[in-house]
Structures are given as C-alpha cells and as structure tokens.
Design a protein around this nucleic acid. Structure first.
Lengths: 147, 147
DNA sequence: ATAAAAGTTAAAGTTAGCTTTAAGTCAATA
DNA sequence: TATTGACTTAAAGCTAACTTTAACTTTTAT
C-alpha cells in the first residue's frame, strides 16, 4: 500500500506540514517521490514514523532522532548502536515515570488537603494538623513539600 | 526564615531569573519586598513554589497556574474550585502515565527487536519472524506498530 | 475541459518559557 | 572608601517544533 502525505498524516493524526517538516529536517531520507515530486508514503514509512513518534515521546529531540535515522540507514552494522540507544531511552523513561509518580504523590496530597478543608470549611484545619493527625501516607509528602 | 531571590532559587534549583519571570507573570502576587524593593521570600513562598512546580509537571501552563494562584488569594471561598482543579490534574496525570506506559511498551519491543537482531547479526531475523515465533508479550505491540 | 482539492517549496511567523542584556541601585567586605 | 557581588527593571533574544503564507503545480472529480 502507498499513501499521499495527507493520507499518511491522517493515519498518524498529525498535520501534513509536520511530515514535510520532518522530511526537511532529515528524518525521512528514504522518502520516495513520483516523477512530479509528490511524496509516496509506504507501510514501512508508517512504521518508522511510529518509531519517530515513540522516540519523541521519550523526550528525544528532532536532531537526535535524525541521528537514529542515520543509524537505520547504515543497515545491520549499526544494530549495536541502535540497541544501546533504545536502552538509554528506556532508562530515561523510567526516570520520567518515577518523576511523574512523585508529582502524582503531591497531587494526591493536595486532593486530600482540599477534601479535608472542604469538610471543615477552612484550609486552617489541614494546615494546623499535627503530623500524627494526618493519614500515614500523607506525612512524607507534606514533609517534602515543607522541607 | 526569609530568603533572598538567590537563596530561594538555590533551594528550588532554578535560576533567579525564573522566579522574577514567575513574579512578572503574576504567579507571586503575595511577594513582599524590603523598603528598597528587594524581594523577601518566606517558607510559605517555598511551599507555594513547590506547588507551582508540581502543577507545571502535570503539564499546566503558566497562565493557568496564575488562575490557580488567584483562587488561592481568594481564601476559603475557593476551596471547592481548588479541589476540582487538583482532581482534574490527577486525571490528566493518569492519562500521561498511561501514555508513557504505551511508549515504554514500544521501547521494550525495540529492545527485544535489536537484541534478537544482534544475536542473529541482521534485522532480517526479527523482521521476518511470524507472529507465533515472537514472545507472547511482543505480539500486540508489533501489531500496533504495523497497524 | 475546467474547477476544486491537494500536492510542492522557501521563507516568515508563532508559542511557551525562560534567559540575557543593559543600565542602574544596594549591601557587605578589604 | 572603594570594590565586589547581589539585587532591581524593561526589553530584547533564544530555542524547539511546528504552522502559516504565498506562489505555484498536479491530481481528481464533474
């Protein structure tokens, strides 16, 4: 199967201009064109664009994704480098997930805080609770927020 | 305890210019100053800056964080609105964590893919594996990437 | 056959969230 | 007392990742 830029953009839920931008930035060096210069997208292009999307979601920048694409273009001799790259992305993702969990802890604390304030009619109540008055799992979080 | 902008910036691990920028954007309407115009940061400011950082980490924009600060300045009458705001941030975070897990699934697939390619010396091996040759937990992920 | 829809490029514009610069004031140390 | 370092403001500058615009060509549908 082949697709025009508009069709591929729809499949990926991005704007056609985004795909042109990626091409201009060197992310799509394998792109084929018709005799009249119109881009022809293939199923293999869909797959690599999904991977580009994934790498972006790990926090990688376009210029670094371009380096990955360069590795892909080198074929089998860059397998090791590509494996190492994905291992690094995995480590980076694990850090992001831990950070997000820390943020979730704070948000959960604030939900408890405002629920308690709501019942009491004033934030003074949760504000003035001593450490042993608050739920076990809120103590460390409040301590971290106050430092 | 009180702090200068430089001391507070160090505590929060941000640049002093960042705190000035937040102030200019209306995130710190409670800021006090010396007679000579120098900002005086208090422990309560540290706490609210931690919350600002948390809200940013949930993906909230500066102008929306400013609205939250406006609610805080209104006192107890905005408790409900603030509770709802944090509940929304929690829902948003849950979506982000699910998305991140999806990204992690793809990265894990690619780690498996390149480990398999490395052992074989060529990506042709994982590329040509039939569905029942790949590990159980890789099947759905590859299907999603190929669509 | 013609009009509309979709493709093309290069270049300029947008946005968020800072950071830097320039010009100046204030506080602390040698 | 003088110099250093930290504070102040307003305004300009920066960066990433697109998006928009303008001018044009190609493809598709009636």
């Amino acid at each position: 199967m082949t697709y025009t830029i508009g069709e591929m953009a729809k499949l990926l839920d991005v704007a056609p201009s985004t795909l042109r931008y990626y091409d201009k930035e060197g992310l799509l060096p394998f792109m084929e064109r018709t005799e009249n210069g119109i881009r022809i997208f293939k199923d293999s292009d869909y797959e690599i664009l999904k991977i580009i999307h994934c790498l972006k979601a790990t926090g990688m920048q376009i210029k670094d994704i371009k380096e990955f694409i360069n590795l892909v273009m080198q074929g089998d001799k860059s397998i090791d480098a590509r494996l190492e790259l994905f291992k690094k992305r995995k480590a980076e993702l694990e850090k992001q997930m831990a950070d997000l969990q820390g943020t979730m802890d704070t948000v959960n604390f604030k939900c408890w805080y405002y629920e308690t304030a709501k019942k009491a009619g004033t934030t003074a109540v949760p504000d003035n609770m001593s450490d042993d008055e608050l739920p076990e799992d809120m103590r460390k979080i409040r301590a971290r927020l106050r430092n």
